[in-house]
Design a protein around this nucleic acid. Structure first.
Lengths: 237, 237
DNA sequence: CTAAAGGGTTTTGCATGCAGATTGTCGAAG
DNA sequence: CTTCGACAATCTGCATGCAAAACCCTTTAG
């Protein structure tokens, strides 16, 4: 009886429910999205019951998913008290940004030495797409291409560990970076800085690229921090 | 019936079995140790049955532990085929080392600006303990204090994200770093390099500290890589 | 001799039930 | 009115059972 009922649930409760062998991965992605989108606010508890019903899976794969999200740093699990969405202070986010900048400066140096001409051409192509999105005022598209350009620097560095950590840690704070985009003031300036970044990369000037990137990210963070602190003060999620 | 038997198992099968609420954490640590110690060789499958019996826990917390270890990068899980200890090539390890060096150079710059005098004094104290271990020929102790000194640089940087990532990524390759210690050739030289590191830190000379650290780690990696490639060729774990 | 096909065994994926922990509620005492 | 405590409702931690997938060994066709 219980088995039949269980499988019926997984078949009807959620139309996009996961197949066998993918349930916990499905839950990880779903909860991650809920956190990034703000549907699950920071500090909120994540009751197993609610999520299982929402996703149409049972508690076992859900609990595996929560463990994964805990390692990823998106939730915190307390014994006998379950999971809660991690609450980050402005200082916490700044620390992550600072570390990511360090990673990217390392990647930049390596990229200038190791990138193939094709990889640099790809970065340039992305840059033009981004400039186009800027001219059209397509904010979301601009944001996404922007992310891709910075990732391309890591690709150019030919170091899988760098890229992996960059992606994982970026995910932790993606939500906060996006916020700053509502502040359009910095937009033209950011595009201009990207010109310089591209130039330095094309000329494979590692030292110059480092400094340009450092300034670019630091300016970006200052703008983001301004928006964030106005919005929430020190109490972020 | 089943419950009584289950709890009896957790009480007697493993004398150091975990308490309620700690079983998966216990399993994570136990399996991590088995991997680091080489008891579970790279490429080996990790059958749930065997581990549960060994640790005296049931499959549920074990599977949670394996998910955690997968995110940590120590095992790989394939659907319907279970977990296997990740096999790293010499190139994979080198990529991680390269990234860790980048992180430490970032931390070093920050440390020179932000460290308190007490924190630097702590680094110096560790340095003297390490030198003492060297003179006594206490290899293991030397290795551990060495790790602590490098961690202290991250502590001095006052950036929790940097320290967290450094610890997590170091854990992935701890096994390989340790190997190089059997090669005692580099020992006196390494101690000497540590003198320079300490000096640069005490004088808060970020640029110098960067270059000294870069050389130190690069030399260390060359020695390690030599041992590793002699031992396993390109087929590491 | 290799390759495909069967079938029994083992292993994984997951839903669930039970025990213990926590939380919420309400009444009594201060 | 607040505080403490008992009790109930709820939630988490975990062992387990069932189904599906993978595995392994034997048999058989090419």
């Amino acid at each position: 009886m219980q088995i039949v009922e269980g499988q019926a649930t997984s078949g009807e409760a959620a139309p996009d429910a996961a197949q066998r062998g993918q349930r916990s991965a499905f839950a990880v992605q779903a909860i991650r999205d809920m956190i990034v989108s703000g549907e699950l606010p920071a500090g909120e508890r994540v009751p197993e019951r609610v999520i299982t019903e929402r996703l149409g899976i049972s508690r076992t794969p859900l609990r595996e998913a929560l463990k994964v999200l805990e390692v990823e740093g998106l939730v915190q699990i307390s014994p006998n008290r379950g999971a809660m969405v991690v609450k980050l202070s402005l200082g916490d986010v700044e620390a992550v940004i600072e570390m990511l900048i360090g990673l990217e400066l390392s990647a930049a140096e390596l990229a200038c030495v190791r990138a193939s001409d094709e990889e640099i051409a790809r970065a340039e192509e992305l840059h033009h797409e981004m400039a186009s999105a800027y001219r059209r005022g397509a904010l979301i598209e601009y944001f996404n291409i922007n992310q891709q350009i910075h990732e391309q620097i890591f690709v150019c560095a030919h170091n899988a560990a760098l890229l992996r950590v960059y992606r994982a840690e970026s995910a932790r704070i993606r939500r906060f970076r996006f916020v700053s985009n509502r502040e359009a003031t910095r937009w033209p300036r950011a595009v201009q800085e990207h010109e310089q970044i591209l130039d330095a990369l094309k000329q494979r000037e590692g030292a110059i690229l480092r400094e340009v990137l450092r300034a670019h990210h630091w300016n970006g963070w200052k703008a983001t921090a301004k928006v964030l602190s106005e919005e929430w003060g020190e109490e972020l999620g």
